[in-house]
């Protein structure tokens, strides 16, 4: 184990021997340390310095620490969601307190509660209106799996219509549990490639022109041809970075 050195300016302990990797595998930035001989960071006597890191880390670091949730409170989970954002549980500690009620400004969809098939269109539309990159938390058992509503009217898990990143069980989950889910999501964001949000390679199900339609990677059930049934969880989205064999003119 490498020795930790105290930073002269901040007093923090930091790694000094080259680029260290954190548990998630992302590059950790080097702390500016004027005593260090590392070429990745330096500072002069007046304290002006630089530090080098990977762009991926900085982008993901910025993303994960400023999630803007879109609260989709559909039933009792919505109450817990409000408590989570409120002062007692204080989601602001994790930088995700700026709930907006327009999907255009959000990047974290929290599906809190029972999603019915009648509401599914609205939910999907909200998801589609959110700008990329975006993440989804299925809060509570209803949105995770349909929960106790084993019924014709309820979507048996929002992963039937959306790609879900984190499932938080509970009926309703305590705010701490959802905060834990958000921390898990932050860990997940940390590992993502900033250009390509989806880490797992999804199934290409359809090619139209230069667009490729993927099955969402979170779809819980193995790929089947598209038919209408609640047990076949099929979600499609278009891949922007699909191979685009555009016809070269001239």
């Amino acid at each position: 184990m490498g020795s930790l050195k105290q930073d002269a300016h901040t007093g923090e302990l930091g790694p000094v021997d080259g680029a260290d990797r954190n548990t998630a595998g992302a590059l950790r930035p080097l702390v500016g340390d004027r005593t260090s001989a590392s070429p990745l960071s330096a500072a002069d006597d007046s304290g002006n310095g630089f530090m080098a890191t990977s762009l991926d880390f900085v982008v993901n670091w910025g993303r994960k620490n400023s999630l803007w949730p879109m609260p989709l409170g559909l039933s009792c989970c919505g109450i817990e969601l409000m408590a989570m954002i409120g002062p007692k549980f204080d989601l602001a500690r994790f930088g995700a307190e700026a709930a907006r009620f327009t999907p255009r400004q959000c990047d974290l969809l929290v599906v809190a509660g029972t999603l019915t098939w009648k509401m599914a269109r609205a939910c999907r539309q909200i998801y589609d209106q959110m700008p990329d990159p975006k993440w989804v938390i299925a809060m509570g058992v209803c949105s995770s799996s349909g929960g106790m509503y084993d019924s014709y009217a309820v979507v048996q898990g929002v992963d039937s219509i959306l790609p879900v990143d984190v499932y938080v069980p509970g009926c309703p989950p305590r705010p701490d549990a959802v905060i834990d889910g958000i921390l898990k999501l932050q860990k997940k964001i940390e590992r993502e490639h900033p250009h390509r949000r989806v880490l797992r390679v999804p199934d290409v199900v359809e090619v139209r022109g230069h667009e490729q339609w993927y099955r969402a990677p979170n779809a819980a059930v193995a790929a089947k041809p598209h038919t209408s049934s609640t047990h076949e969880k099929t979600t499609y989205f278009v891949g922007r970075d699909a191979a685009a064999p555009k016809e070269q003119k001239r």
Partner: peptide, 29 residues
């Protein structure tokens, strides 16, 4: 006679989804 899990409960949603997808492609083209 209505089954517990319903009869194609997602039928309307899937039809809507396909409609949107087609619209999307039309707009793109």
């Amino acid at each position: 006679e209505f089954p517990h899990h319903g009869i194609e409960p997602d039928k309307l949603y899937r039809a809507w989804e396909r409609e949107r997808r087609d619209e999307f492609f039309e707009r793109r083209s």
